[in-house]
Design a protein around this nucleic acid. Structure first.
Lengths: 190, 190
DNA sequence: GAAATAGTGTGATCTACATCACATCAAAAT
DNA sequence: ATTTTGATGTGATGTAGATCACACTATTTC
């Protein structure tokens, strides 16, 4: 866990300035979690009092339709923050599932601690402000892509953005993320 | 402008606590802007050193394809914050256009002032943090909709979410926001 | 208030992609 | 090591929605 916390510290320092005392305080609020491939970080119907920073591994966050069809909202890997933010923010119940596509390690923070620390440590509020602005921007790019690009273009853009992802996960998940059927993806991904 | 600033103060107070001194300081950094229908707030290729809070009116933020086809990313009305956040955040050049669908009034803040004040006034950092988290969540809902719902479902959801929008703007813009052709929309919006 | 421009509806046709159905191959699980 | 389960490719067929074409009606604009 010490090593993981050190990585997290660097992650913070890439975006904001944090003093050593602040870091000591912040870091004391994280816990460590380790999961194997196929285990769940968040399951539909749960409370979601935590958000997770991925130390290593790869997870998918997705929504299940009644039919059982799954729609992937996000692949998250090293250095990403994940949660069901909707449930997290509104203290509601999760409508998303997040599970591991590879063995993974996380640093875990509770909602209450985050809100408390964001008031106490302005740099932290700024960190999350900047992170979520960036998340907003990249989702906006995704919306644009869904509206104006063909499935093939979206696939090529994804390969360009995350070249190794396509190697790391089954194509059916890539398809589900792109909003296209497995079969159609197979016809141009070869 | 005084009246507009008062409204903005209430808008802040809905989300965070701000003292009167803080407000005095924050509010001194806003300027006022008034535009008529069809005038541009942001045009492709411009620098985007500002973000805008809409006092009254309605704008559309959109992207133009080479063909001239337009894709609407967002309708923004009273109480919304708008800008080309990508260009704004990265000090880049705008790829979006934002123009007025109705006569409109704005309170304007510069990027530099925002960053400066977010460091000086933690409550402000928290305000924007919470706002952009909410923006992120609602874009996530939109991505879900684009992936799993039919155009008709998306239209009905929009009508439910913003019932008066459909009255306020031409249907072709609604279509462009939903990612569907004008003609197709017309076939089920009757 | 006449002319020009923008908004809207509706048919006919076309197309990207979904769905179904099956075959092959790789990888877990017993 | 053999069975079971998951991943992938590929044909045949179906369909939501795009595109084209035109008519009609509001709304600007001069």
């Amino acid at each position: 866990m010490e090593e993981a916390l050190l990585k997290l510290k660097h992650h913070f320092l890439e975006t904001v300035d944090i003093t050593d005392e602040e870091w000591k305080y912040i870091s004391s609020h994280f816990t460590f979690k380790r999961l194997k491939k196929h285990q769940f970080l968040i399951q539909e119907g749960m409370n979601v009092p935590h958000e997770f920073w991925i130390v290593k591994g790869l997870v998918k966050s997705y929504f299940l339709e009644e039919s059982g069809k799954e729609y992937i909202l996000q692949f998250a890997l090293e250095n990403y923050w994940v949660s069901d933010f909707h449930a997290y923010q509104n203290h509601g119940i999760s409508t998303l599932n997040i599970d591991c596509l590879e063995d993974a390690e996380f640093l875990v923070m509770s909602f209450d601690d985050r809100e408390k620390m964001c008031v106490e440590v302005p740099a932290l509020a700024n960190f999350f402000r900047i992170k979520s602005t960036k998340g907003y921007i990249s989702l906006q790019q995704r919306v644009m892509g869904l509206m104006k690009d063909s499935a093939e273009k979206r696939f090529n853009d994804l390969v360009e953005k995350l070249p190794n992802l396509v190697q790391r996960v089954p194509k059916k998940y890539i398809a589900s993320y792109l909003g296209v059927s497995r079969e159609t993806l197979s016809r141009f991904s070869k």
